[in-house]
Design a protein around this nucleic acid. Structure first.
Lengths: 209, 209
DNA sequence: TACCCTACCAAATGGTTGCTTGGTTTCACC
DNA sequence: GGTGAAACCAAGCAACCATTTGGTAGGGTA
C-alpha cells in the first residue's frame, strides 16, 4: 500500500503533451495550487509530480529546486502589487481617494494572484526568510501606505488621533487574510469586495446619522 | 557544521530541573515559541528538544506525539476566546457595545495566547484539518459575531448596506493577523490597540465633520 | 538519414524525519 | 537502605525527503 508500483493515473506514457503552451508555467500553477492548499512545506515534490502526472525527478528538468517553483509565483505578486500602488500614488489624488485606490489595487490581486496570496498566508515566516525580496517589497508597500495616511492626516481628511502604522497593518492583515475565503466565482465580485472594504475602513460599519 | 557533537547549552546533565512547576507546560511554551517562529511543520522535535536542553526521545515521556504538543496550546486559545465571547453577548448590551466587547476580547488574547495565535497564523490549513475542534470553534465564533452584527443592523445602529459575513471575516482577519507584529511589551498596549481597532471598525479612519 | 532538443522515466543518493526501545539517574518517602 | 516513579539519555529504526544521474521517446530541422 505504501509503495505499490505506481502507474501514472493520467496519460501513462505520453510525451510532448503540452501543445505549444509553456509547460513551465503550467507546472507552477499546479504546484501553486497544492502549496496554497496544504502549505509549502507540507507539500512534497512527489505531490506536485503526481498532480502533474509525471515523475518527481522530471520536475528538475524545469526547475532547479522546490523553492524556485514558488519564487516566480511570489515575485509576480509583489511586482503587480507595487506597480499598482505606484500608479495610484502617482495620480496625486486626495488622500481619501488614494487610500481607496490602494485598497482596490490590493483586493484586485485576490483574484489575479490568489495562489500566491494563499501560499504567503500559510508560510509567510518561512518564505520571507528564504526570499529576501519579500521583506524588501513589504517595506516599500508600508512606506507607500504610510505616505498616503500621513498626507490624509495633514490635510484633515483623516482622523488625527489615528495611528498610521496600526491602521496600515490592520488594513493589510484584513485584505490578505481575505485570501483565505474569497473566491471570485462566488456571489461577491472583486469590485464589490473592494468597495465594501474601502467603505469599512474609511467610514466604519456604524450607521451615519 | 551540520551535525557537530551538540552539547546541550544549558544544564548539561542535570535532572529534576523543574522544581515544582509543571515540566509539561514548560515544554509546551518552548515548543510553541518555535512553532510560532518557524512554523509547526518546519520545526522538528529535535529543534524542540535542543531548545529545552534534552534529547529528542525524552519528549515522548511527556507527549504522545508532535501534534499533541500543539493541541493543548490551540485548545486553550479557543476555550478562552469563546468563553470571552459568551460573556460579552450574555451581557445583552447595545450592538455597538457588544461589537466593541468582541473586539476587546479578541485583542486581549493577542497577549495572553500569542503563541497559539502565531502558530495558527502560520499553519491554519494543516492544523484545522488535523484538529476538527478548530473548525467547530470557528463556526461558533462566526455565529456569535453574525448575531451581533445582524442585531445592530435591525436596531439601526449599523449601516444596513453592510454585508455581515464580509464584515465579520474582515475583522477576524485583521485581529488575528495582528499577531504577526504585535508585542505587548511595545509602545502600544493591548487596551490601546483594542480601542484603536474598535474605533476603526466602528467609525472608520475618516475625520468626522 | 542523421542529429539535436525537449520532456520525460527509472533508479538510486545521502540526509532527515517522527518515533521507539532499553537502560540510567535522581529523589521523595517509607 | 530499599522501593517506585518521574525525568531523562543513547542508540537506532523504518519511512520519507529533495535531489542527482544516466538513459530514452519522439518531434523538428538539416
Amino acid at each position: 500500500m505504501t509503495s505499490a508500483p505506481v502507474t501514472p493515473p493520467a496519460k501513462p506514457n505520453g510525451r510532448r503533451r503540452s501543445s505549444g503552451v509553456d509547460r513551465r508555467s503550467e507546472l507552477i500553477q499546479i504546484a501553486g495550487q497544492l502549496f496554497a492548499d496544504k502549505g509549502f512545506l507540507a507539500t512534497t515534490i512527489r505531490d506536485v509530480a503526481d498532480a502533474a502526472g509525471i515523475q518527481s525527478g522530471s520536475l528538475y528538468h524545469h526547475f532547479t529546486s522546490k523553492e524556485s517553483m514558488v519564487e516566480e509565483l511570489l515575485g509576480d505578486y509583489w511586482t503587480k502589487l507595487l506597480d499598482g500602488y505606484r500608479a495610484v500614488v502617482s495620480a496625486e489624488l486626495e488622500a481619501t481617494e488614494s487610500a481607496r485606490g490602494l485598497i482596490r489595487a490590493s483586493v484586485r490581486l485576490l483574484d489575479e494572484c490568489r495562489l500566491a496570496l494563499g501560499v504567503m498566508l500559510n508560510d509567510w515566516n518561512y518564505l520571507s526568510e528564504t526570499f529576501p525580496f519579500m521583506e524588501e517589497s513589504l517595506r516599500e508597500c508600508q512606506s507607500i501606505w504610510l505616505g498616503v495616511l500621513e498626507r490624509g492626516i495633514e490635510s484633515g481628511e483623516f482622523d488625527a488621533s489615528m495611528d498610521p502604522v496600526i491602521t496600515y497593518r490592520t488594513i493589510m492583515a484584513a485584505v490578505s487574510g481575505t485570501a483565505r475565503w474569497f473566491s471570485p466565482s462566488g456571489k461577491v465580485s472583486v469590485d464589490e469586495l473592494a468597495d465594501d472594504m474601502a467603505a469599512m475602513f474609511l467610514d466604519g460599519m456604524r450607521a451615519r446619522p
